[in-house]
Design a protein around this nucleic acid. Structure first.
Length: 963
RNA sequence: GGCCGAGUGGUGGAAUGGCAGACACAAACGACUCAAAAUCGUUCGCUUAACGGCAUGAGGGUUCGACUCCCUCCUCGGCCACCA
């Protein structure tokens, strides 16, 4: 037997697959299709790393599996090759980015092939290929023609290091997504794509993606950030134009005690003459702008602002004059750039009002009535009024006395231990009585004991209270006293215990408990409207629509902002537009596409907001396609994300010269069945490409509205030290070295064995050998059987006389088929690897037929294709059968009758504790099992003097006797 | 601050209501060897001399039975972050 030499066999089979075009996908009239997509890489000089390996291997395994299942499977790859590293290299070394790209692509291709990935190379694409970016430009023009691409001057995010503008999505924590430099704000003329026009569609589309992870959908949903509310006009005294605000809480309008406008708000300029302290205001605005350019987290979030003296607004609900402030906590780009401030019910307004001593008016009371207790008009709990309660923690027997006062905020009295005992309580009572002026209140009746009924009620109705570990003893004689609004009038009200429970649930725990912990704060939860004239008593949700409609107009707002779509760099797709003095902006005619990048010597970005292309006069100067007069080319290029916003469509028809893709081919291949990629693209590429696809769908250019049926994210691979792999840490594991030392099959299997595909895992250099050992054992096992088919059954396995597997092998193999099939369908690769090992451990000394070995090899093939092919060749030769690739065979089915064991071990429990085990035939009835169990010694002993009250029987699993 | 996810041996992880720790790594011992490596075999959560007892971040609940479901708290990770 030859040794398992991965170097020899892996090269051999990689060449075989390439020569036989094993993985070329063709539109087939007969077969259903699968489109398996992985995010195409940027071909960097450093080559591909573990971050690429993970999704690629998963996609490869899944593709090979689906081909065996009979699907025409497309598993394509390409290069997302526009981008900064090649350009920066060009600046440094003077080598054209296309040359660097070519070199890096060749290198990455070699890597990919050495990993044994079954990509369809006939569909390879490259975003920097003019034949490809011709269509990126063409698609951009479709956006332009529909008014979804527009030019505007605005404050945009600017990366000073990369010297280019950035989209909102490319700013992470105030830093550049690419280089980590702190992003500045810069006023620039830019191209935008109107993604906000698709906000609603992007949101709606998520509902039709049941196979997407909730986390991804949620993240996109939050990014789009839809909120419903109202636009309300606040008139300004002696001025015709009002201030418009957007609010999600029109129900709190009676509590709007001042207004705030953003520093950019036009009102400030318009009203310059009337603002008495304009100098101060102008100074503040200048400072705010500067602050925006600095790292905001370092600055902190201390509220700042200046009142616009001389300007007063009128609250349309109360008709009262309220002051207007300018503050940078109001953003110019969201809503209307102005707010009505309701400090009692908004944390930011509360903070601001507290700092600048502005009035705080409460207009919402926490709701305190439980479901089974409808609101009682005779119990108007308004939290401005004094409530006293004493809390006992049953665990520590600690007491806590809380009080809330009429005019001030909550006040915590004291916490104390049990040792303080009754005297402490009395002291509390006295203190409370003094504070409130109400003398007859009795706080606690039964010290140290839970008031049984009350406790029960809390437990049943108010888990929240119970689980906090506190029991309320709020008792006066045998009735419970709640001191509500009536307290002020010295007329106590008597209510049922049930109401008290509800009261505590609603009022104490929703609000008061937080206050105890954190001190006074705004009440942001929903509740009931108070202090709002005819609206009093309305619940929040109802009040929002009613009051929003009464005082303004109900509307919807999104956080999503338009996509800044131009970059001031060389190595990107030129935006195919021409500026003509007479005709304005004219699209480059389709016949003149692509607008190719000029060949230049100097790539350096200017840094002044102009693209380096602007310096190439001969390229910039052109003729207007309309009037033929001298005109100028647009010199900005497109962002990195342009090419990837439609690349999966091109895979369906990569060589098409007349269209970006043929409709018939799109119809066959769309949508992508599984898209493997990282979480980091959720609000970047994944959102952008959904936008492009939705737009193209509306234009009738693609066949489905949502491009990716299933999205499966992967966790990142950490270094052996559990830290993110990085050169500076020196913990980078290079996949190519693993291939060299252990082989691609080991690399692939170990990567999967590390843990669930979607969770973060850390690479363990020592762990790899476990997988290699397993493959070594499989190699030896199959070789021995193939080479010595006449061995004895004892010791070894194959004998001419036997034509059948042992029963054990049959059952184990069928179980394995079931397990692997299910795991592959659910992307649970890690447990598949374990299952292979278990199978081998279990049956390695059993008699197994060559046919069953082949079945095993088919199962193994998607995971470790090279060794599986090699061993299959060996077995086929022994059988004197034609040798082909395993890829052309079909995936085995399992026999449901054989996946169950013939006999099973039943767990015998008494009161849920394991007492014994019993082996019975599979499917044994309760009667049969129970009879046997009762006869067991261990059971007899345990049952002495006891009677069996109940028997729980789970067929083939356990029997539990309850005594 | 908001939202999402996760916490299980020395380590990676398995078990999604039914024997917790599958499968591996590491470690220890044994076989083979002059020896070492490789390979094969045995042991391997804590505690106890043992019977047993205790263990899935902490506490509580539901259940005959909880890593799994529910509640509260803690810790770590991710995304967003003054979005009205």
């Amino acid at each position: 037997m030859q040794k398992y030499d991965h170097k020899k066999i892996e090269g051999k089979w990689q060449a075989f697959w390439a020569k036989n075009k094993t993985f070329i996908a063709k539109e087939s009239a007969k077969k259903p299709k699968k489109f398996v997509l992985v995010e195409f890489p940027y071909p960097s000089g450093a080559g591909l790393h573990m971050g690429h390996l993970r999704p690629y291997v998963a996609g490869d395994v899944y593709s090979r599996f689906n081909r065996l299942k009979g699907f025409e499977t497309m598993f394509p790859i390409g290069w997302d090759a526009f981008g900064l590293p090649a350009e920066n290299y060009a600046i440094k070394m003077g080598v054209h980015p296309s040359i660097t790209t070519k070199k890096n692509v060749a290198n990455a291709k070699k890597q990919i092939q050495s990993w044994g990935l079954s990509f369809d190379w006939s569909r390879e694409i490259n975003t920097t290929d003019p034949e490809y970016y011709k269509w990126t430009q063409w698609l951009f023009l479709q956006f332009y023609k529909k008014g979804l691409a527009y030019e505007a001057t605005g404050l945009i995010n600017w990366c000073p290091k990369d010297k280019t503008g950035l989209a909102n999505e490319e700013v992470i924590d105030g830093k550049c997504e690419r280089c980590g430099t702190i992003v500045e704000k810069k006023e620039l003329r830019q191209w935008y794509l109107r993604i906000t026009a698709y906000a609603e569609k992007l949101l709606e589309g998520l509902k039709n993606l049941p196979e997407w992870p909730e986390a991804v959908k949620l993240q996109q949903e939050n990014w789009i950030g839809k909120s419903t509310g109202a636009i309300i006009k606040f008139p300004i005294s002696n001025f015709q134009f009002p201030i418009e605000v957007f609010t999600t809480r029109p129900d709190t309008i009676f509590g709007a005690s001042y207004m705030v406008v953003a520093p950019e708000h036009p009102l400030i300029k318009n009203q310059e003459s009337r603002i008495k302290n304009y100098d101060e205001v102008a100074k503040y605005i200048a400072k705010a702008k500067e602050k925006a350019e600095m790292d905001r987290t370092a600055e902190g979030k201390e509220k700042t602002g200046v009142e616009l003296k001389g300007i007063k607004a009128i609250n349309p609900a109360t008709k009262q004059e309220i002051p207007v402030w300018v503050a940078d906590y109001v953003l110019g780009h969201y809503g209307t750039g102005a707010i009505m401030a309701v400090p009692a019910h908004d944390v930011r307004d509360f903070e601001f009002a507290t700092k600048f001593k502005l009035p705080i008016v409460q207009v919402v009371a926490p709701e305190f009535v439980s479901k089974d207790e409808p609101p009682k008009p005779e119990l108007p709990f308004v939290p401005r009024n004094a409530v006293v309660c004493l809390v006992r923690n049953p665990k520590t027997n600690e007491f806590l006395c809380l009080q809330w006062q009429v005019s001030e905020a909550w006040k915590t009295f004291v916490t104390g231990g049990v040792e303080k005992g009754e005297d402490y309580i009395v002291a509390c009572q006295r203190e409370v009585a003094e504070e409130t002026g109400y003398k007859n209140i009795k706080l606690v009746a039964e010290l140290g004991q839970a008031h049984e009924k009350f406790y029960h009620l809390l437990k049943k109705e108010n888990r929240h209270a119970y689980f906090k570990g506190f029991v309320f003893d709020l008792v006066n004689e045998d009735k419970t006293e709640v001191v509500g609004e009536e307290l002020a009038k010295h007329k106590p009200v008597w209510v049922s215990e049930k109401s008290v429970a509800a009261f505590i649930k609603g009022a104490v725990f929703k609000h008061f408990w937080d206050l105890y912990k954190t001190g006074p704060k705004a009440l942001v939860e929903s509740g009931v409207v108070i202090n709002s004239e005819k609206f009093d008593g309305l619940k929040t949700e109802e009040a929002i629509t009613k009051m929003g409609g009464e005082f303004g107009k109900l509307t919807v707002q999104y956080k999503l902002r338009d996509w800044v779509f131009s970059r001031q760099r060389y190595w990107g797709e030129p935006i195919p537009l021409i500026h003509c003095e007479d005709c304005g902006i004219v699209p480059v005619p389709e016949k003149d596409l692509p607008v190719k990048l000029p060949n230049v010597k100097k790539y350096e970005p200017t840094g002044n907001g102009e693209s380096p292309l602007a310096d190439i006069k001969s390229w910039v100067k052109t003729k207007c396609p309309k009037c033929k007069k001298t005109a100028w080319r647009e010199t900005n290029t497109m962002p990195q994300w342009a090419g990837s916003s439609w690349y999966w469509l091109r895979y369906a028809d990569p060589k098409n010269k007349t269209k970006f893709a043929d409709m018939k081919k799109l119809k066959y291949w769309q949508p992508v069945d599984v898209y493997l990629g990282g979480m980091e693209h959720t609000t970047l590429h994944l959102l952008y490409s959904r936008f492009w696809n939705l737009f193209l769908y509306d234009q009738g250019l693609v066949t489905v509205s949502e491009p990716y049926k299933k999205r499966h994210p992967h966790g990142i691979v950490l270094g052996p030290d559990g830290e993110k792999m990085s050169k500076s840490r020196g913990n980078v594991v290079n996949p190519d070295e693993v291939v060299k030392k252990y082989g691609a099959d080991t690399l692939r299997m170990y990567e999967m064995f590390l843990g669930p595909h979607e969770s973060m895992v850390s690479w363990n250099d020592q762990g790899v050998v476990g997988v290699r050992r397993f493959l070594d054992r499989v190699w030896t096992w199959v070789n021995e059987i193939a080479e010595a088919p006449h061995q004895q059954e004892s010791g070894i396995r194959n004998q001419e006389s036997r034509a059948k597997d042992t029963d054990k092998v049959q059952r184990a193999l069928n179980k394995l088929i079931k397990k692997i099939t299910e795991d592959l369908e659910n992307f649970r690769f890690n447990t598949s690897i374990s299952a292979f090992m278990e199978f081998h451990n279990e049956i390695k000394d059993e008699f197994i037929t060559l046919e069953s070995i082949k079945t095993f090899l088919i199962l193994l093939y998607p995971f470790a294709p090279h060794i599986a092919e090699e061993l299959n060749e060996k077995v086929s030769k022994v059988e004197k059968k034609k040798v082909g690739s395993l890829q052309y065979l079909s995936w085995p089915n399992f026999d449901p009758a054989l996946v169950i064991e013939s006999s099973v071990e039943i767990i015998v429990q008494i009161n849920g504790r394991v007492k014994a085990k019993l082996t019975v035939a599979a499917g044994a009835t309760q009667e049969a099992v129970q009879a046997q169990v009762m006869a067991m010694d261990a059971v007899k002993q345990a049952l002495v003097g006891e009677s069996v009250k109940r028997v729980i029987f789970v067929p083939n699993r356990l029997i539990n006797l309850v005594i």
